[in-house]
Write a protein that binds this DNA or RNA. Sequence first.
DNA 1: TATAAACCTTGACGTAGCGTCAATGTAAAT
DNA 2: ATTTACATTGACGCTACGTCAAGGTTTATA
Lengths: 254, 254
Amino acid sequence: MEYTVQKLSQLAGISARTIRYYDEIGILKPARINSSGYRIYGRAEVDRLQQILFYRELGVDLQSIKKIMSSPAFDEVKALSEHREQLLARRKQLDLLIRNVEKTIAQRKKGSIMMDKEKFEGFKRKLIEENEQKYGQEIRAKYGEKTVEESNRKFMSMTVEQHAEFTRLEKEIKETLRAAVQTNDPAGELAQKAAELHRRWLGFCWNSYSKEAHAGLAQMYVDDPRFTAYYDEIQPGTAEFFKDAILIYTGLRE
Amino acid sequence: MEYTVQKLSQLAGISARTIRYYDEIGILKPARINSSGYRIYGRAEVDRLQQILFYRELGVDLQSIKKIMSSPAFDEVKALSEHREQLLARRKQLDLLIRNVEKTIAQRKKGSIMMDKEKFEGFKRKLIEENEQKYGQEIRAKYGEKTVEESNRKFMSMTVEQHAEFTRLEKEIKETLRAAVQTNDPAGELAQKAAELHRRWLGFCWNSYSKEAHAGLAQMYVDDPRFTAYYDEIQPGTAEFFKDAILIYTGLRE
DNA sequence: TATAAACCTTGACGTAGCGTCAATGTAAAT
DNA sequence: ATTTACATTGACGCTACGTCAAGGTTTATA
């Protein structure tokens, strides 16, 4: 079956202008140009457009799409599988947003307090996800399937050495915290050392440090069961203790 | 808690440029400007930004967001509820896309045939959903929530007279359709009159008319059980009949 | 306390991805 | 044969920022 511009645009639910634009930028060329000068598209172009729309849906810019699909290594079925992965991830993000709005509604009705940070759960991730979309696939295409850690490292522009330091710091925080919690003194030397190490650890994640953000994160450690569980693995109450230590360290203790 | 531009941008996961741009276009003004000329944002602005991001996530353009949120009838909790509805709908669309990609993968591996039309399931709907986001809520208001009707009317900047005309047209469409469906001829005079009336009715909702959009909406009437039910109230099959009439009217019958 | 680094401002240019329209030729329907 | 619908190229305009320069202010560090 063959399609002219309008037919193809209707089929795909996009504008005729878009079809022509895609020809113009070389991302979707017609199969041929007929004697009248009309663009004629066929089955292969339909399939290609489908792929383009998946990439577009997942937020990939057109130049990247073009580069990916023009590579000799481009494998259509593999690409489709990757779209699926990304779509599933997008659905997870959407679930976060849905949970966020539900939480916001509930708390607005109750007139209770919601952490500012919580209000952007799902949105914030969008930035990270979009970056992963741009670069994560490139990494996967080059080296095959990797862990999220690998792509996150890329995103953060870390060198291998920096990453080792990052990991070492994390370990040291945990060990220092283990000793500090025994003192039961969040203002003590050990606790404050842990907080200082934590601050340095954050230096790898944040473009800039602020005491408020640090304090906010500490609060989140006790507010979010996932983080609480991470620290309470050392000993129940550690997350709370660490929060106090950080609040003291930042001078923002209430 | 107060935030300067960068702090707020980090909190929300968007750029500082975006924050400034939003101030510039008047969609998110700072709480105050400090003695150095710095923008200072507070709790109310954080909540407002959250709402903006929800609207943005759902594809609403900034001018529309501004208009909606500056309306005296704007109800924060109600808006959040609507975001939730839309996010759930978006998730459905995503499920369609996921199913589409899975079907595509399966059929590519089997080397079997997939209808061209099927390949765009989920994408096509995106256009329709976006139109619904802008205008379809008004349609939905007709069938359900009267309180939302009031705020939507304001949004559309309708006069009382215009609203009466809008309502009268709606009634006339239904009556014409009732008579037309008895003829069982979607190309007939009555059916085409109904389609023409529908076009005029859409003139109150849409900034611009296009045959494709009209046809798309007609398709939606049979695809979406809510709309189908509205027309099938006249007589079962009316929605399908009206779709055919509109497709003929717009010349986009397949 | 001085200095460097980080952050703020305004102003301005540029871009991706189209939407819209004009002018003109072609295909399909009447 | 005529009208309507669809095609083309060319070109301007728009939304929503991204980027950068120049210069002032705040924060961290030595």
